[in-house]
Design a protein around this nucleic acid. Structure first.
Length: 299
DNA sequence: GCGTCCAGGTCTACC
DNA sequence: GGTAGACCTGGACGC
């Protein structure tokens, strides 16, 4: 089944797809030949839709690969999920006004940069973020691939959904360590999944929470395995950019761009971005990923 | 091929 | 509040 969705004038599909590494972590998958983003969209009634997305004539084409017909309710849910993932209805006008004031960031609105791709659920974003901590990107890919193929639902071909909190909570710690290769992160993933299944943590409400950012940050930090870096970046995916979420890669890029490769303290980096107020985390991300936008396929 | 070392964030114990 | 060490894996390196 195929339908299209309108896109705002300042929206760039490809800039959003390649806003960070999520697009290559399953169930996301990029088809470079056809310039499509493939995703698996779960719905409330446990239906899973394998969807292929691409831009055509300023509209987003939604191709549902595993269903010929969608009910009105299912189509509404799929549309809502895609809009959430691509941040289609999130206004970045204020950010772009800010960016245009600085010659260094004039390229940002021109490229339609700033919308950070996110998963259908907050749970998926948080699990993936934990899987990026203290390891190489290659290991993150191994862990996420194992989570989907061993604990997700098979959709079609080599496509699997991302596991639910229930699916992870039902596993043993040794299984997560040995089969998912997540090592010492295993108890963190188990505790997170169990807190959600026991209804001790309403993680999906974070995206619509109107709590002050600092309060939300502390709640995100209450998840074991989520430290300063992970929480800062999870917050960016919740639409809050007050924290930098620095990791070794970001620090390295900052040194390269601003200090001729000389290491500086994190507090120096924080002072550098302080003038950007609540958008500082996004301005940092624009700096460290600027060279991505000059390539068709950054990775 | 094998062993050793290192990088990568977070947690916990300790001062 | 700050710091050291442990956690675990893949990759680089030397032999």
């Amino acid at each position: 089944m195929k339908f299209t969705l309108p896109l705002p004038s300042n929206f760039s599909f490809w800039s959003t797809v390649y806003s960070h590494g999520w697009c290559v972590l399953p169930p996301f998958n990029v088809d470079k030949e056809q310039k499509r983003l493939n995703v698996v969209v779960p719905t409330r009634h446990n239906s899973m839709y394998h969807v292929s997305l691409y831009e055509e004539k300023k509209r987003l084409v939604v191709l549902v690969e595993n269903s010929r017909q969608l009910t009105t309710a299912a189509r509404f849910e799929v549309t809502k999920a895609i809009s959430t993932m691509l941040r289609i209805n999130e206004s970045l006008d204020e950010f772009y006004v800010h960016a245009k004031k600085h010659p260094r960031y004039r390229w940002v609105s021109r490229r339609g940069a700033g919308r950070l791709l996110r998963s259908p659920t907050v749970f998926e974003d948080v699990v993936k973020m934990i899987c990026t901590t203290n390891c190489s990107w290659a290991l993150t890919e191994i862990m996420v691939a194992a989570l989907t193929t061993k604990l997700g639902v098979h959709i079609q071909g080599d496509v699997y959904s991302f596991p639910t909190p229930n699916a992870i909570a039902a596993q043993s710690e040794p299984f997560l360590r040995k089969e998912i290769r997540c090592g010492y992160r295993a108890p963190f993933l188990l505790e997170l999944s169990q807190r959600i299944t026991n209804e001790d943590l309403s993680i999906e409400q974070w995206r619509t929470s109107d709590a002050p950012t600092e309060e939300l940050f502390n709640e995100v930090r209450s998840v074991k395995g989520v430290g300063e870096y992970a929480a800062g970046n999870i917050l960016k995916l919740l639409g809050r950019y007050d924290y930098l979420g620095l990791d070794s890669w970001c620090r390295g890029k900052f040194y390269e761009i601003f200090t001729k490769g000389r290491k500086v303290k994190d507090s120096t980096i924080e002072k550098h971005y302080a003038p950007f107020g609540k958008w500082r985390g996004l301005f940092l991300w624009m700096d460290v990923t600027k060279d991505w936008y000059e390539k068709e396929f950054p990775f």
